[in-house]
Design a protein around this nucleic acid. Structure first.
Lengths: 223, 223
DNA sequence: GTAGAGTTGTCAAAACCATAACAGAATGCG
DNA sequence: CGCATTCTGTTATGGTTTTGACAACTCTAC
């Protein structure tokens, strides 16, 4: 199966678009659309059709020349590629506001990431129910991860604890960490980390806002 | 001031790194570091020094050849560039779990985005206090935005309402929208949108996890 | 004062990604 | 059937971003 190894040698940019394709396709599926051409799909996502076909090309053909894509086939194919053909048991570490928000984010389940464990150190939170899951003491972390075969953890603990918790997660067998703490985690080879920095997002937005305001001022000055 | 207009013609990739530079520099500042070389700073962020210098080069020199960067000068310079030299009044639309999480996210204030208005339609939420701010009825949206001169809005409402709310925001004078709804917002020229899709994040993580698992299986098979 | 180590700003090369172009295939219609 | 249209898969082109390389400059040590 050389193809498997090769199918992982894909640009990050392409990987980030796969979820968008899947999302849109599920929407089409829900309203009963059967066929969709690369152009239709691309336009609805505001990208070029050639880029979409190029992306798909990394994974081999999803259709044949002359025939549009079949939604019914494409959805499971993408799910397979993304790795959510089977539900991926997920844990949330840190039941603060952000952790709660994510635990209650219904879409997580729907999109293939059922939450099988919520953990915190705060005695006031331990025992509370969130979406049918009790908040557990961190003592149980390793046990639950192993029993539930959890592979992905969402980390919403304070920065100061993030690295220590990450170490425990890796030790317990976690392979993917979705990190919301503004800290660069050091993890061994064979563990994937994705940092989600709210601050980066809002600041790059601020940069654009500043540019807009400046150009408006200049436009006025020029009149 | 041609430089202003030019300073906005910067690759997105560079813009996204600016907040990281600033964050790290503030950390250094806090522990009393005065000088820092491009190599030191770059290594701590796990990027190449040449990239950092290249990024800075877009905005003109922050130092002179031979001399390292001075933290005390670099921090305000970056704040200026990002547009947070002055605090940027911000609103949160949607006081659900995610909205609450962000409202309580202390760093928002610290990093230059004081929350000056929290809005929701749910009568049960209206009136509640979050970080010293009452949750207001959406009726007050336009008034508060204008009075507080709010320019940036964080959108955490359900997908179905996102576009309608965005329209109101733009009408009221909002220039930047930080959108957490999985919807592509249509906004007029002169309004910046940044989409933050949690689903995309966790799915691209899942892709990498799947690749790791596959390569592990293959390694075992090869032995 | 001079050599050497270390630094930035700048430009050139390499790697990467997005777009365009096109061959080959299917479909629909007269 | 034959033609026009539409479509994918694939390759080539063009552009952007990252990385490497180096001149010019500063400081320290001796």
């Amino acid at each position: 199966m050389v193809k498997n190894r090769k199918s992982c040698e894909v640009p990050d940019a392409t990987v980030h678009r796969l979820p968008l394709y899947l999302e849109k396709l599920k929407l089409l599926q829900a309203i009963g659309v059967e066929d969709v051409s690369s152009r239709q799909l691309a336009e609805s996502l505001d990208i070029k059709a050639s880029q979409l076909r190029h992306d798909f090309h990394y994974f081999g053909g999803f259709s044949r020349p002359g025939r549009p894509y079949q939604v019914e086939k494409l959805v499971p194919a993408l799910e397979q590629i993304i790795g959510i053909a089977e539900p991926v048991p997920t844990a949330i570490i840190g039941a603060g506001h952000l952790g709660q928000a994510l635990a209650n984010y219904h879409n997580l389940d729907v999109q293939g990431f059922p939450v099988r464990g919520i953990f915190d150190t705060n005695p006031k939170l331990i025992g509370l129910e969130m979406r049918g899951q009790p908040v557990r003491d961190m003592d149980e972390l390793e046990t639950v991860i192993r029993e539930e075969k959890i592979k992905i953890a969402i980390l919403t603990v304070p920065s100061a604890n993030a690295q220590a918790v990450a170490d425990r997660l890796v030790e317990a067998g976690i392979i993917g960490i979705f990190n919301f703490a503004p800290t660069d985690l050091k993890v061994p080879e064979g563990v994937a980390v994705r940092n989600e920095r709210l601050a980066v997002g809002i600041m790059s937005l601020s940069f654009k806002v500043k540019c807009i305001l400046q150009s408006q001022e200049e436009d006025i000055a020029e009149v």
